[in-house]
């Protein structure tokens, strides 16, 4: 940003005394680095209303709990239409396969599911809470989400079908593909000249 200041008919000039003259000065302004202090401080309620994320270590998990039996009911009512009674996804709905495929990742025909590919139980909770069910995203209660996650992971034999998931137990779940991810080493083709 530049400020262009034109001074006309400056009557006093320290070099030329009384000679009136026009000068043009382009001033590069000092950087204004802030703080600008725009905006407002959000209330705790405003942040809480949208701070829905859940991290692998359990940060962000809400209170509440749920188990396999309740989750089965939630699944039947809210999930099965697209994800199927067999958890394989219903063609044409966009519902992904949720279970199966364990051990398929290096087969050349990988089947990426919650069971075979997802590295953290927190990711399942987080995604169901923010975006599922597809026709009514964000509509499940926290207990319903704990339940349906317990149901899925129980059906996948990742946790016991008698287990209850809550803010303490969910981060302790070990997913089969937890160590399946590596960092990005690219460039991986070296044609430099």
């Amino acid at each position: 940003m530049y400020i262009n200041i034109k001074l006309k008919s400056v009557s006093t000039n320290w070099l030329c005394g009384a000679v009136a003259m026009a000068i043009s000065v382009t001033v590069v302004p000092m950087a204004i680095a802030g703080p600008y202090d725009f905006g407002s401080t959000p209330t705790a309620e405003e942040i809480a209303a949208i701070d829905i994320d859940v991290m692998p270590d359990g940060r962000g998990l809400p209170s509440g709990s749920g188990g396999h039996a309740a989750g089965k009911e939630v699944y039947a009512a809210k999930c099965m239409a697209c994800h199927g009674a067999d958890f394989a996804g219903v063609a044409g709905t966009g519902g992904a396969a949720l279970l199966g495929g364990r051990g398929s990742l290096d087969s050349g025909k990988p089947k990426k599911t919650v069971e075979s590919y997802w590295p953290y139980a927190s990711t399942v909770f987080d995604y169901v809470k923010r975006a599922m069910p597809f026709n009514a995203p964000g509509s499940l209660s926290d207990d319903e989400i704990y339940s349906v996650v317990a149901y899925l992971l129980g059906e996948a034999n990742i946790i016991d079908k008698t287990a209850t998931l809550d803010a303490k137990s969910l981060p302790e779940v070990e997913m089969p593909n937890q160590d399946g991810f590596i960092s990005d080493p690219r460039p991986d083709v070296f044609n430099y000249d």
Binding site: F181, I182, D184
Partner: peptide
């Protein structure tokens, strides 16, 4: 302090390689 490991950066937008491991946070 840590990545959030959301669905889009774990189950989607990761690059499965020969051998069954997947590259994650392959941004560039």
């Amino acid at each position: 302090d840590k990545p959030f490991m959301t669905r889009e950066e774990t189950s989607k937008y990761t690059d499965l390689l020969q051998g069954g491991k997947a590259r994650q946070f392959s941004f560039t």
